[in-house]
Simulated scan of single mutants.
Amino acid sequence: MKKVALLATALAIVTTGSAFAADLRVKALKAPPPPAFEPWDIAFGAGIMSDYVFRGITQSNHKPSVTAYFEPRYNVNKDLQLYIGASASSISFPNRAAAEVDIYGGIRPTFGMFAFDFGVWGYLYPGGQCFGSQGTLLQGNCGGDIDYSQGAIGLPINGNFAKKSASFYEGFAKLNVTLNDQWTVGFNEYYSPNFLNLGAWGNYASITAKWTAPSTTFGASGVGMYVSGEFGRQWFGTSDIFYGIAGDPVYANGIKEPSYNTWNVGVGFTYKVFTLDLRYYDTDLSKGDCNALTSDHTAKFDSSFTAINPGGFGSNWCSAAGVAKLSFDLTAMTNLK
Rank of each mutant, 00 (worst) to 15 (best):
S259F: 09
K78C: 02
Y191F: 15
K325Y: 01
W263D: 07
I308G: 07
K30S: 13
K256F: 13
C318Q: 04
S319Q: 11
E189C: 14
N61K: 12
S18I: 13
T184V: 15
T212A: 10
Y148F: 08
S60N: 07
P94Q: 00
G159Y: 12
A209W: 01
G143K: 03
T306D: 04
A162H: 04
A162D: 13
P64E: 01
A307N: 03
C130F: 03
V66R: 00
K256R: 12
F195D: 08
S65M: 05
A292Q: 01
F111N: 04
M225L: 12
F242S: 07
T331W: 00
L155Y: 14
S18Y: 15
Y169L: 07
P249H: 01
A213S: 13
K287Q: 12
Y148L: 03
D329E: 06
D23H: 09
P126M: 07
L155N: 10
V185P: 15
N75A: 09
F231S: 02
Y271T: 01
G199L: 05
Q150Y: 06
M49V: 01
L276P: 00
N160R: 07
K164P: 02
A21P: 15
G127F: 07
C130I: 13
K78F: 03
F242Q: 04
K3T: 13
Y281R: 08
G106Q: 09
T334P: 07
E38M: 14
Y69A: 06
F172A: 03
P35A: 11
F313V: 06
F44W: 14
A88W: 01
K256A: 11
F231G: 07
G105K: 01
S87D: 04
F116C: 14
G322P: 03
S87Q: 06
S90K: 02
K63S: 15
N75E: 05
G132D: 10
S319T: 08
P72S: 07
C142Q: 12
T334H: 05
F111I: 12
R108P: 15
G144C: 04
Y190S: 12
C318A: 01
Y191A: 12
G219I: 05
D23W: 09
A200M: 11
F44A: 04
L198P: 10
G132C: 05
G314E: 08
K163E: 13
P310H: 00
N188G: 09
F118V: 12
I207R: 06
T9Y: 13
N253A: 11
Q150G: 14
G268A: 09
K3R: 14
T178Q: 02
S87L: 00
L336I: 08
T58V: 11
N197I: 13
F116E: 06
T184G: 04
Q234S: 13
A36F: 08
I245K: 05
A10Y: 14
F54C: 02
Y280I: 00
T178F: 01
I153T: 15
S221V: 07
I91F: 00
R108M: 09
L138Y: 06
F54T: 04
F44K: 09
M333T: 08
K325N: 05
G314M: 05
C130A: 10
N176P: 01
Y204M: 08
